[in-house]
Design a protein around this nucleic acid. Structure first.
Length: 398
DNA sequence: AACAGGGGCAACCGCTTGCCG
DNA sequence: TCGGCAAGCGGTTGCCCCTGT
């Protein structure tokens, strides 16, 4: 059959032989691939151009990193996938030396199963219904009045007196001990202040002292935020101009898992419709609490899940206080050059803010994961639109 | 030792997007 | 503006290998 681009040619299909690989590599190395359709002819291959292109991109490219995925890469995939969905090419851009095909295969063959085993829906990264039921059944209420489903993760240290049996396991006990307690810091808080429809936003980061920092916003597009490699968690929350916290999501870098969920801290408990948050983000209030409860990092080791959740909530409240909400909406270009524009806009304090804390915590020996500005922009789009296309939502925003 | 089943991975298919005449 | 072509991308398929029986 063959591809439409080479249906008239006699093309070979199936696995590539070492001789074919050699021919292709030699040709590409010497001549490049300005036009893939002409490559097989000039390289002396009985293949179609598309097949050559795939073979080169997925297997023969010299900058490819072969071998199994590292834990860090796995975490990155999970975290980026949670935001971008099955956009493998986008995800692969955050993993140097990896191809979209490789990431996709790794996801389908490995990560997906892990998430399912942890009671997480690999598509939404939310808790599966079965786990949800368990969580609701074991939930308690913390002093702040929000439901906190309480259970211990394996790394929790067993200090929780009233912890119930965890419905699923997230963390690895071994990993928890790999990290020196002094190097661990509490989870970073992401806060996204979402403007009203039609208004743009900007990015801002908070550090661990809840001070607004602008590194994330000022970093050039493609500049990765730094994960110091010791794991830890990242919490995200969103609030609108009325300072209503609509949603929160937690990412547990430490344990290589993540989950998104939401809560609404508005006194009335209702969702504001105007900012585009989807109902799906509001539907998992207890799951968020559950994830917080599981985020037992070494830095606060020994705390019961409940205490950790409270710790996180306190931090979140502090960050909310630190957030600056501008007096009027201003449309802000988020594509290309958005970082600079965002930084400038923040200085002027004239825009509603999409406030993303991407503070870095951890020890030395940092390794970069790829939450660059593009990703944050994507994130913004997705959060505003729920499960929809992030970039489309971004366009909606802008 | 032989076979079946499952997992992992490479490759293919088909749709979408972007470019150019 | 439109059509053709090439490239990009995500979903799917099929083969190979490993493991358990």
């Amino acid at each position: 059959m063959g591809h439409h681009c080479c249906s008239k040619q006699k093309v070979k299909r199936g696995l590539w032989s070492p001789e074919e690989d050699e021919k292709l590599v030699r040709y590409i190395t010497e001549h490049g691939h300005s036009c893939w359709s002409s490559v097989p002819k000039h390289a002396g291959l009985q293949r179609c151009g598309k097949s050559c292109r795939l073979r080169w991109i997925n297997y023969l490219r010299p900058d490819l990193k072969r071998g199994t995925f590292s834990e860090q890469e796995e975490r990155t995939i999970i975290d980026v996938h949670r935001i971008l969905g099955n956009r493998w090419a986008q995800i692969a851009k955050h993993l140097p030396g990896r191809t979209d095909n490789e990431v996709k295969n790794f996801w389908n063959s490995c990560i997906k199963k892990k998430l399912i085993a942890q009671g997480l829906d690999p598509k939404t990264h939310n808790l599966l219904p079965a786990s949800k039921t368990l969580l609701h059944g074991g939930g308690v209420t913390n002093p702040s009045g929000k439901g906190i489903a309480q259970f211990q993760s394996n790394a929790g240290g067993g200090a929780a007196g009233t912890a119930t049996t965890p419905p699923f396991t997230i963390s690895s006990p071994a990993k928890a001990f790999e990290v020196a307690p002094s190097a661990a810091m509490p989870p970073t808080l992401y806060e996204v202040v979402v403007p009203n429809p039609g208004a743009g936003g900007m990015l801002m980061a908070h550090d661990h002292n809840h001070q607004a920092v602008t590194a994330a916003a000022m970093a050039p597009a493609g500049y990765p935020y730094t994960d110091h490699g010791n794991g830890g968690g990242v919490l995200m929350s969103f609030r609108d101009q009325n300072a209503v916290v609509h949603a929160a999501a937690s990412m547990d870098f430490m344990n290589g898992s993540s989950s998104s969920s939401s809560m609404d801290q508005h006194a009335g408990g209702g969702m504001a419709n105007g900012n585009g948050f989807s109902a799906s983000m509001a539907a998992f209030m207890d799951e968020e609490a559950a994830m917080w409860a599981t985020a037992v990092e070494p830095g606060i080791g020994g705390l019961a899940g409940m205490e950790v959740a409270q710790h996180h909530q306190q931090q979140q409240l502090l960050v909310q206080e630190a957030a600056v909400v501008g007096p009027r909406p201003t449309t802000l270009m988020m594509n290309g050059g958005a970082a600079t524009a965002g930084a400038t806009a923040m200085v002027n304090k004239s825009v509603d803010m999409v406030d993303v804390s991407s503070a870095v915590y951890g020890g030395v020996g940092a390794t970069a994961t790829a939450f660059d500005l593009d990703l944050m922009v994507d994130s913004c789009g997705m959060f505003c639109g729920g499960a929809g296309n992030a970039m489309e939502q971004l366009q909606w925003d802008c």
